[in-house]
């Protein structure tokens, strides 16, 4: 591929690569970090990256918001001038789901802290083994 071809490839796809990098960061944080709160943050980063990925599917070059009252004239319902509303709808649901999971995870973390007094996973394992 020529240099122009590579540049075209990057311009066409770079947003997706950024979100993939974010997903990998979140995933790495969840697996490798030993502090429970850091793992929860990693989980949130993973979910947020997926949400951004979906939302970026919806954009169209030069298009406007999907609220018809703001449009006038012949462009009113031309799909090429209005962004795709469906991924936004799906991600409203996904945001709520991630908030709910976060709430339950934090409640469990509070219970773990009440029981063990620490939030480091290796210390908790030591306490569990010596109990």
């Amino acid at each position: 591929m020529t240099a122009a071809g590579y540049i075209n490839l990057i311009i066409a796809k770079y947003n997706y690569w950024i979100y993939i990098v974010l997903m990998c960061v979140g995933l790495w944080g969840m697996i490798v970090k030993r502090n429970l709160v850091k793992k929860i943050i990693g989980m949130n980063i993973l979910q947020t990256a997926i949400i951004l990925f979906y939302v970026s599917i919806a954009t169209k070059k030069g298009a406007a918001l999907p609220i018809l009252a703001h449009h006038i004239g012949a462009h009113r319902t031309d799909p090429a001038t209005i962004i795709n509303p469906l991924p936004h709808v799906l991600m409203l649901t996904a945001i709520v789901v991630s908030v709910a999971t976060l709430g339950v995870a934090l409640a469990l973390t509070i219970n773990i802290y009440k029981r063990y007094g620490t939030l480091e996973e290796d210390e908790i394992h030591d306490l569990m083994r010596n109990a």
């Binding site: 997903m23 995933l27 969840m30 429970l36 793992k39 989980m43 993973l46 979910q47 997926i50 990925f53 979906y54 599917i57 996904a94 999971t101 339950v104 995870a105 409640a107 469990l108 973390t109 219970n111 773990i112 029981r115 908790i124 569990m128």
Partner: peptide, 30 residues
């Protein structure tokens, strides 16, 4: 998470792995 003894930690690990699984499914659908 509402079991006895170490249920909270077991459930938190369940949350982590379950969320990764569900997120992967969501990504596949995407």
């Amino acid at each position: 998470g509402m079991g006895k003894r170490d249920a909270a930690l077991a459930s938190l690990n369940y949350i982590f792995m379950g969320t990764i699984g569900a997120s992967f499914y969501l990504l596949g659908v995407g």
